[in-house]
């Protein structure tokens, strides 16, 4: 499509433009060819990836939904009926929601300010945001329990503020995903120009952020929320070491003494997460103006 229009314009242009246009057209053609013909190696990679992801799921299902000899849903019902299942799931959900909100409330304004006012700080913020990839969760937890432990002057661990440590730890782990998602969305819209337009119409910086910027980057915010939520829901190390019976910790315990029930619940959690992801994606697709964020003129 773009190749055709390019040729049309080129005929009215100067000689160098015609040459450039023809070159661009060749490039487009070459790209289109690449896109239409799927090479064999791509199919092999895709097949291998599918096997890698689907076989464990299939094995889990086979193990969880059988007595060893025949298919049964009994382990699933037993697992769902367990008190520990409900309490741990609710606990995880609660912490995941708080973490997600915290990630959005902290990261979105920070990324906005970096983009608008402090572009010089970008590299520092990017470095801080990827620290969780460099520092393993176990080190983070050991650090947290030392700094805020019983022997510390700020003893949070045995106080009623102890959950702050868990949420704080989760928050740090979500940073790389949340920052990247929000920052990409901010860079896709012209934040500076939109902010200046809003200011020229009398809007305060806070009003501009909430009414203009946030709706314009809704897709990025949804992605950030999704990533933060799933990271927090699936986090094991910090919760286990700090002694919180969250859902992943509970699943590990159940697996130890009731393996079939445990596997059935793993599948349930897998489908709950997927349902959540799809629901949020559907919401994002319906948000007005997101086309601008999603696709530029290219």
């Amino acid at each position: 499509m773009s190749g055709g229009s390019m040729t049309g314009e080129a005929t009215e242009e100067t000689l160098p433009a015609i040459v450039a246009g023809a070159h661009a057209e060749r490039l487009v053609r070459r790209r289109t060819r690449r896109r239409t013909r799927t090479p064999a190696w791509a199919a092999v990679v895709l097949g291998a990836a599918a096997v890698y992801f689907l076989v464990p799921l299939y094995a889990t299902a086979v193990f969880g939904f059988s007595t060893g000899k025949a298919f049964t849903l009994q382990p699933l019902f037993a697992g769902l009926a367990d008190d520990g299942f409900h309490s741990s799931l609710l606990l995880s959900l609660g912490y995941a929601i708080v973490t997600t909100c915290l990630a959005l409330v902290v990261v979105a304004p920070t990324a906005y300010l970096v983009e608008l006012r402090f572009p010089g700080l970008r590299s520092t913020i990017e470095f801080v945001s990827i620290l969780p990839f460099v520092i393993p969760p176990i080190i983070l937890t050991v650090g947290l329990s030392t700094v805020y432990g019983i022997r510390s002057p700020v003893n949070l661990i045995s106080s009623e503020w102890a959950p702050v440590l868990l949420v704080g730890g989760y928050f740090v782990l979500t940073l790389p995903f949340a920052f990247r998602a929000i920052d990409n969305a901010l860079r896709a819209v012209d934040v500076r120009m939109l902010s200046e337009a809003a200011a020229s119409l009398g809007a305060s910086p806070v009003h501009t952020f909430l009414r203009v910027i946030v709706p314009s980057i809704s897709l990025g915010l949804v992605s950030a929320a999704l990533l933060a939520f799933t990271t927090a829901m699936g986090e094991f190390t910090i919760a286990a070491l700090l002694g919180y019976p969250t859902f992943p910790v509970y699943l590990l315990n159940v697996n130890a003494y009731l393996p079939r029930e445990g596997e059935a619940l793993v599948l349930v959690s897998f489908f709950i997460t997927w349902a959540g992801v799809l629901a949020l994606a559907a919401v994002a697709r319906r948000a007005p103006g997101t086309q601008i964020v999603r696709g530029g003129p290219m």
């Binding site: 120009m193 020229s200 910086p205 203009v212 103006g289 601008i292």
Partner: peptide
């Protein structure tokens, strides 16, 4: 935002949402 001036930008700067 307190100067009471209207501005029109080269790139329109319309709010996409």
């Amino acid at each position: 935002n307190r100067r009471g001036m209207g501005m029109v930008f080269q790139g329109y700067a319309l709010f996409p949402n």
